[in-house]
Computed example of a mutant assay.
Amino acid sequence: MSSFSHVNASGEANMVDVSGKAVTTREARAEAYVYMSESAIELIQRGDHHKGDIFGVSRVAGIQGAKRTSDLIPLCHPLMLSKVAVDLELQAAKKRVRIEAFCKLDGKTGVEMEALTAASVTALTLFDMCKAVDPAMRIEGLRVLEKLGGKTGHWHAGGEQQP
Rank of each mutant, 00 (worst) to 15 (best):
S2R: 13
S3G: 15
S5A: 15
S5T: 15
V7H: 01
N8I: 11
S10M: 12
S10G: 08
A13G: 11
D17K: 13
V18R: 10
V18E: 10
S19I: 08
G20P: 01
G20I: 00
K21E: 12
A22N: 13
V23Y: 04
T25L: 12
E27C: 11
A28E: 06
A28L: 11
R29M: 11
E31M: 02
V34F: 05
E38K: 08
R46C: 08
R46E: 09
G47T: 04
D48P: 06
K51S: 12
G52M: 06
G52E: 02
I54L: 04
F55H: 02
G56H: 09
G56I: 08
G56D: 09
S58K: 04
I63Y: 11
I63Q: 10
Q64A: 11
G65R: 13
A66F: 04
K67V: 09
T69Q: 09
S70C: 13
D71A: 14
L72F: 15
P74A: 11
C76T: 06
L81A: 02
K83V: 13
V86K: 05
V86W: 06
L90K: 01
Q91E: 15
K94A: 15
K94F: 11
R96F: 10
R98N: 09
E100P: 05
E100T: 15
C103Y: 05
G107A: 01
G107I: 04
G110W: 00
E112I: 05
M113H: 01
L116K: 08
S120M: 13
L124Q: 13
L126C: 14
V133Q: 00
V133Y: 00
D134W: 08
P135L: 06
R138K: 10
R138Q: 13
R138V: 07
I139H: 00
E140A: 13
R143K: 01
V144M: 07
L145D: 06
E146T: 08
K147I: 08
K151T: 07
K151M: 01
G153Q: 00
W155P: 07
A157M: 11
A157K: 15
G158I: 04
G158K: 09
G158V: 00
G159R: 01
E160W: 07
Q161Y: 07
Q161I: 12
Q162E: 14
